[in-house]
């Protein structure tokens, strides 16, 4: 970990999945990446949900699981409470160590042959209320949104530093607006996965994201960004918009695969129960090839652009 002026830099594998626009598939992309990187590359992945909507947490743990986690003292709102009370930054106690739904990963674990795993620092709807309380408290002491997000980023940096040796990747599912939490998450990330849709309003949202984060968080954002077009409907309009995004507006960004609109993905994100497991093939069905390519392309991107690290495939 080091600093570059006022900007925080972490030297580990922290990935923010972010876009200012909502509904572009941030949580779905987060979960697909976590599943596929754990399954195909055997990575130990931590998913940190910074979005009070808690969608990726629900997808991984189910809604009941999210509430159960909170009752067990787990979740990002506890990390926020720790900050508010001025306690030492530690994320470990708030992590749900098992957020796996893929049968092959569970079966390997049962045989003490762990090869790929997913843990979660889940969100809970309480997170938004805690964030509001924090903002009121901070601003009443003449703090500003910027000083709050910087202080939170330092807290996250300290909290995550103990986790870095334990995980191959930490995926931050960021909320779709510039709240202090979101800004802190963006500040500690090494690279950015930017899901978007192939339509005009999503292009505008992505443009605003690139502009704001490029100016305020990462001057070299373009080199650190991996974009994924999600929920693609194969129409002339969508093909034209995708072509413009890839060849003109975001031509310097690494694009992952285009993920088609699919009922199978919706189903895959709706875990039947916290004790439900499915094979990778069963969970993703006909989409499994797309989800595999998503991880493969991301690994190529990581290798080429950032960490000079090469992850090796452990399953096909």
């Amino acid at each position: 970990m080091n600093t570059d002026g006022n900007r925080l830099i972490m030297s580990a594998n922290i990935v923010a999945i972010a876009n200012l626009k909502g509904g572009v598939g941030k949580s779905t992309t987060t979960v697909m990446l976590a599943d596929s990187l754990a399954y195909h590359f055997g990575l130990n992945v931590l998913v940190v949900d910074l979005d009070a909507q808690a969608n990726s947490s629900q997808m991984l743990l189910t809604e009941q699981g999210v509430h159960a986690a909170s009752e067990q003292g787990k979740g990002t709102h506890h990390l926020l409470g720790q900050f508010l009370e001025g306690r030492k930054a530690m994320a470990g106690p708030f992590i749900m160590p098992n957020a796996v739904s893929i049968e092959e990963l569970r079966a390997a674990e049962m045989k003490s042959e762990r090869l790929g795993w997913i843990s979660a620092l889940p969100a809970h709807p309480q997170l938004r209320m805690d964030e509001l309380a924090l903002e009121e408290e901070w601003y009443s002491r003449t703090g500003t949104p910027t000083t709050l997000s910087e202080a939170l980023a330092r807290h996250f940096q300290n909290a995550f530093s103990d986790l870095l040796p334990l995980y191959d990747l930490i995926l931050l599912d960021c909320p779709p607006h510039l709240s202090p939490l979101s800004r802190a998450g963006l500040a500690v990330a090494d690279v950015f996965v930017i899901p978007t849709l192939a339509d005009a309003v999503s292009s505008w949202g992505t443009k605003q994201f690139m502009s704001w984060v490029g100016e305020n968080v990462r001057a070299d954002l373009v080199n650190r960004s991996f974009s994924v077009i999600t929920r693609f409907k194969n129409t002339n309009y969508a093909r034209q918009t995708r072509s413009e995004l890839q060849n003109v507006y975001l031509k310097d960004i690494w694009f992952g695969p285009t993920i088609p609109e699919s009922v199978q993905v919706l189903t895959a994100m709706d875990r039947p129960a916290a004790d439900s497991y499915d094979t990778f093939r069963g969970k993703y069905g006909k989409m499994r090839g797309d989800v595999r390519v998503l991880a493969e392309e991301f690994v190529k991107f990581v290798h080429a652009r950032k960490w000079n690290e090469s992850f090796t495939k452990v399953r096909t």
Binding site: E103, D270, P272, A273, S276, D278, T279, G282
Partner: peptide, 8 residues
Amino acid sequence: HNLASAVD
């Protein structure tokens, strides 16, 4: 109705 997988 996505209430159980084949594994379950």
